[in-house]
Design a protein around this nucleic acid. Structure first.
Lengths: 113, 113
DNA sequence: ATGAAATGGGTCATATTTTATCCGTAAAGT
DNA sequence: ACTTTACGGATAAAATATGACCCATTTCAT
């Protein structure tokens, strides 16, 4: 009903800071490429104001807007450096912790290799 | 008025693919940490359904939701590997191209160093 | 095998984003 | 210096995301 807790409000400050910083980076990259906000926004299929919100670090912009910006800037491959399973130290450690002390031989009939 | 062109519709397939892939990565990281969707969602201050949309690769989820997920997973530092100005090859190249052939000495009175 | 718990999916109400447009200001190029 | 233009801010309307609550199904541990 009331949607009391949107991420925007109770957003950890460190996250908000990261988002603001990413906005600044998008702006820097755009300027380096000598694109106006209008130009870039149209290539992203959004309006100038939406791009402005992104560059300002508004946490409410959709992920698609952010991804589109990276795409227009030619930086879309950066996306896939996020949460890569093979780099996830915590995840790998946790996974190992769940392995059993001793392995049990399967019940002879369901050998799947 | 009509909001004809939302990013969701005219979204380059390669971007959509990246978003879907990121969703899968979030799901993998969550499972590795043995968290239920309900558990993780509550730590993110969102509902289970919103987290489900994220893991499914819905481009419409807000950037805050995505960032919160990374934060809960302990992967928030990954965010800052995106669009880093000092790694932006295209940007650096474009910037250099804009430098003038020859530098002009400033008009003597406005030396700012 | 069995039962509890996790996940998937639908609907409705509401908050928020996004668009479109106008105008003022600041900045850049000539 | 001047003129063009990019940028920033307010508004209203439409589209969408999000939350809350429902139940069905699957998955997991015992």
């Amino acid at each position: 009903m009331s949607r009391k807790n949107l991420s925007q409000q109770s957003l950890p400050p460190s996250i908000l800071h990261s988002i603001v910083q990413l906005g600044e980076r998008v702006r820097i990259a755009r300027k380096r490429r000598a694109m106006t906000m209008e130009d870039m926004a149209s290539r992203m299929f959004v309006t100038r104001k939406t791009l402005a919100r992104l560059e300002k670090g508004d946490p409410g912009v959709s992920f698609a807007v952010f991804a589109s910006a990276l795409w227009v800037l030619g930086l879309e491959k950066d996306l896939l450096s996020i949460a890569a399973p093979e780099q996830d130290k915590i995840g790998i450690f946790q996974e190992r912790k769940r392995l059993p002390e001793r392995v049990r031989r399967p019940r002879s009939d369901d050998l799947d290799f």
